[in-house]
Design a protein around this nucleic acid. Structure first.
Length: 889
DNA sequence: AGGGTCACG
DNA sequence: ACGTACGTGACCCTA
């Protein structure tokens, strides 16, 4: 085999730094069994794989810096001065990066008094002469000075696996100068991170202009006469010496006294046994698993990376499904909002053939409609809800979903909630499909490719990936004992949600517009008063401008600061109340303006012209706890607490005349769940007796012997304690919430745990269990991983501990209402009711129904909700109805 | 794009 | 001593 001469040179320090900071938020999640951080090692490995795959080098060297002092510090003492110390979490990783390299069979080299750059420059130059193509990988743009026709510099961008390749042409295009002029540019401009100054007041723009005119620093100074007298010229003259020195510092050596040559860096491939041991030591389990499986599949590896497909043709009837074989299906729409997004294509895999098309009309005519609508034909897909709603718009009712890759992934790890197909596949170590962002772009650049081969390939790879990943993910689901959660809750729920979303809820737009014009007037009045009180006009919506007015101009006391300035949040303004009339007006302005912009104008913007309804989308695969979220519009945060905001609910109306809005909500579901999972006898007794739970808590923690002795204030405080318990209480948080001292809060909590010892036990146990297992679970085995519970960082660890206490509570409540929703939909269908389930707001279900069905709902809905599960305490459901959502209270 | 603020459970 | 309540999404402003 005659390999081409290709040299890969890697700037080890620079890539390690980039990798480390790219994964910095995940620092605590990448820790091996010895407590070693592994972020930089992990990132380095990913970069290596990617670049080796791309370059296919015959020779590789990784160069490192040898120490702090180099010949450059001898020239200029401040060189690279003022840099903060390398974090210990990174420096501890360097020896292991070298171990990784050795397992990869890759040489590394460092040279006292020289930087990695100089080793790279010297070897690159030598290799070039010997006819090699050279690729240099670094995070440092300065190295682009080395680019030639034979030398390409790959600079890592955001993260380390994404790179930008610099050729001489690309350098010129990007900087407007030739590669060899980069050192002149650095000489003139200086480099803040390497800490050398260049010429005073000369920035990139000036430098480029000068270099385009004169070519080099030397030439500038030889032809100074040609520059007209100016400040800039004075600076040039004054800093001449510095300019030459800086150029020298920037210049990468091509003749460093290295003791290795090109023949020493020949690459003979990975040393598998060493690498396996290394991965085991690092706890890189997925890499290990991948190595094993790739070994098994080495023979058909080539075929695996290639996906072939057939474009469905209008008059071709060769298209036949074999329904005894699995069927994977993917429907592509342009954009997130599948209620109105344009259909752009589909793909399907069946019986080892992949079919693709841009024309979704085919779905209606071919065998496919029948297959999709047949309960007994099991379909594998990605995002069943999206597909269901999309197909429904085409008049097809999707029935038999088997494997929903998005949903299963989410259940396996609710914190890795990536809704992008390609990225999600990657998380499962499947790299044979690109992310949508890569293929379609994002933001303004989002576009479905016109090129058939790009687009069809992407679609084909998706259905292929679904099939490839199905076994692996379903197996994990089983190992986690989450099959019931998937088959009986989440998968059926996705269709229930799809129906609710597609049904939508009617909005009385006229009502909203009336409210809007009233609010507008009110806002104008308030704005004027505020401006008079401030003595000048300013933007009240700008926290920055408001801060200046309140705390500088009016000299009100600063209560709290934010990262960027003064805090003007409600809590702060409330403390300032009474000190100036402007405060009340600002609070009112904020309140009204929120209603106006978010709820009046915001909702009007998303009403569908076709049916006068809003169609939210529930995100089923997002929250870490298992709750749903609602977007576009968010119908889970429609105002209710304050009367002014609550009026918005008057605009939510039934679709038909003589129908009503009907609403049922669980009363204190989270505390009941806590009473159940903690088995606390005292708390359970209160629920079984049907007591007012907050008053009961007050009685207990204040040591009262009768419910009548509980004052309003005691109940309020006890309620806050109950909330605090659910959230994973801290004395500080409680104190802040109800305005008592930390000491008092601490006593409350202590007292609470004395009277509810079961709860205390639960809190201790769950944190210990989380530490042991690395995750916590809900009633139905929904899982949340909490790696940070072992963190040495107090904040991260405390947060994980509170989460460990809260997630089983919040998550189990989410499980319960999901079960209720599925049973509810079933009941509506079985009883042939016209009533429709419209919304879910965490512990509340909202319906619309003909007047005559209301009595039935009043009986059935609470029954289905409180019988969704059987706990050690009863569940309680309260219902209401009226002609609008506002009236259903 | 990210922070501040505020709407909900 | 550390510095916090748990879970979300939308709007506005300002880099």
């Amino acid at each position: 085999m005659n390999k081409q001469k290709k040299l890969l040179l890697i700037d080890g320090n620079s890539v390690a730094f980039r990798a480390f900071f790219a994964l910095h938020q995940s620092l605590e999640r990448f820790v091996n069994h010895n407590g070693l951080h592994t972020t930089a090692i992990y990132g380095f490995k990913n970069m290596l794989d990617k670049i080796i795959e791309e370059v296919k080098p015959s020779h590789i060297l990784v160069a490192f810096d040898a120490g702090k002092r180099t010949f450059r510090t001898n020239e200029f003492e401040e060189y690279k001065g003022g840099r903060s110390k390398t974090p210990s979490e990174l420096s501890e990783q360097f020896p292991y990066i070298k171990e990784l390299l050795s397992a990869y069979g890759i040489s590394n080299y460092e040279l006292l008094n020289y930087e990695a750059d100089d080793i790279i420059g010297t070897l690159a130059n030598d290799a070039q002469i010997k006819g090699f193509d050279v690729t240099i990988v670094t995070g440092d743009r300065d190295l682009t000075q080395l680019t030639t026709n034979q030398i390409t510099v790959a600079v890592t961008k955001k993260g380390v696996t994404e790179i930008e390749k610099y050729t001489p042409a690309h350098v010129e295009e990007k900087y407007g100068i030739k590669p060899e002029q980069i050192v002149d540019m650095k000489g003139l401009v200086g480099d803040a991170s390497d800490n050398y100054p260049g010429v005073t007041k000369v920035g990139e723009k000036t430098a480029i202009k000068l270099l385009q005119q004169f070519g080099s620093i030397e030439n500038i100074y030889e032809n100074l006469d040609e520059i007209k007298p100016s400040k800039m010229k004075d600076h040039l003259i004054e800093d001449q010496e510095m300019a030459f020195l800086c150029k020298k510092l920037a210049k990468i050596l091509c003749d460093a006294p290295i003791e290795i040559g090109i023949d020493d860096v020949k690459w003979n491939g990975i040393i598998e046994d060493d690498l396996r041991k290394f991965y085991a030591e690092m706890d890189f389990k997925s890499f290990l698993a991948k190595m094993q499986s790739s070994k098994l599949n080495q023979l058909d590896e080539k075929d695996k990376n290639k996906v072939t497909y057939q474009v469905i043709n209008a008059d071709e009837q060769s298209f036949k499904l074999n329904l005894n074989k699995p069927l994977s299906f993917y429907l592509e729409m342009s954009g997130d909002n599948y209620h109105q997004a344009q259909f752009v294509g589909f793909s399907l895999k069946n019986d080892d053939k992949i079919f693709v098309s841009r024309n979704v009309e085919f779905l209606k005519s071919l065998d496919l409609k029948r297959a999709l609508e047949d309960e007994n034909v099991k379909i594998d897909l990605f995002d069943g809800k999206r597909t269901y709603v999309g197909l429904r718009r085409l008049g097809i009712e999707l029935k038999g979903i088997d494997f929903d890759m998005l949903l299963v992934s989410y259940l396996l790890d609710s914190s890795e909630n990536n809704n992008d197909f390609g990225k999600l596949a990657q998380q499962h170590d499947y790299f044979n499909v690109s992310s949508d962002e890569e293929v379609y772009g994002k933001g303004a650049k989002y576009q479905i490719p016109e090129d058939d081969s790009i687009f069809f390939n992407h679609l084909a790879r998706k259905v292929f990936a679904i099939e490839q990943l199905k076994m692996q993910l379903m197996k994990k689901l089983k190992e986690n004992e989450q099959e019931k959660l998937y088959f009986e809750i989440e998968r059926p729920l996705s269709l229930v949600l799809g129906k609710m979303e597609a049904t939508g809820i009617k909005l009385d737009s006229q009502k909203l517009e009336e409210m809007g014009s009233q609010l507008k007037e009110r806002l104008a009045e308030l704005e004027q008063e505020i401006h008079v009180e401030a003595g000048e006009d300013f933007n009240i919506n700008s926290p920055k401008q408001l801060g200046v007015i309140l705390f500088e101009k009016l000299k009100l006391p600063v209560i709290k600061k934010t990262k960027t300035g003064y805090s003007t949040a409600v809590g702060v303004l409330e403390e300032l109340r009474g000190m100036a009339p402007i405060i009340d007006n600002i609070l009112k302005y904020r309140q009204i303006s929120k209603i106006q912009s978010t709820y009046v104008e915001g909702l009007l913007k998303v009403v569908f012209k076709t049916d006068g309804k809003v169609h939210t989308r529930y995100t089923q695969t997002l929250t870490a706890t298992g709750r749903l979220s609602s977007v576009d519009p968010n119908l889970q945060n429609i105002p209710v607490r304050l009367e002014e905001g609550r009026q918005i609910r008057k605009a939510f109306v039934p679709e038909k005349l003589n129908w009503k809005i009907f609403s049922s909500d669980y009363s204190q579901i989270e505390l009941r769940v806590l009473a159940h999972i903690s088995h606390d006898k005292n708390m359970q007794a209160a629920f079984k007796a049907g007591a007012d739970i907050h008053a009961n808590t007050a009685m207990q923690i204040f040591g009262l012997d009768a419910a009548e002795k509980v004052t309003g204030n005691m109940r309020r405080q006890a309620k806050a304690v109950n909330f605090g318990i659910v959230y994973g209480i801290s004395d500080y948080g409680l104190a802040q919430n109800i305005g008592i001292t930390r000491k008092q809060a601490k006593e409350f909590i202590q007292r609470y745990f004395e009277v509810f010892p079961g709860v205390k036990q639960y809190m201790d146990d769950i944190v210990a269990k989380a530490r042991e297992d690395g995750f916590v679970e809900t009633l139905f085995n929904r899982r949340r991983y909490l790696p940070e519970i072992k963190s040495k960082n107090f904040n991260l660890r405390s947060f994980a501990e509170r989460t460990a206490m809260n997630t089983p509570i919040q998550g189990s409540a989410a499980d319960i209402i999901k079960v209720a929703m599925i049973n509810m939909q079933e009941m509506l269908k079985n009883k042939n009711l016209e009533a429709k389930m419209l919304l879910q707001v965490h512990d509340e279900l909202i319906f619309e129904a003909p007047n005559k069905e209301i009595p039935l709902l009043e009986k059935l809905v609470p029954k289905i909700m409180d019988q969704a599960v059987s706990l050690e305490v009863p569940l309680k459901v309260e219902s209401a109805y009226g002609k609008t959502w506002f009236d259903a209270k």
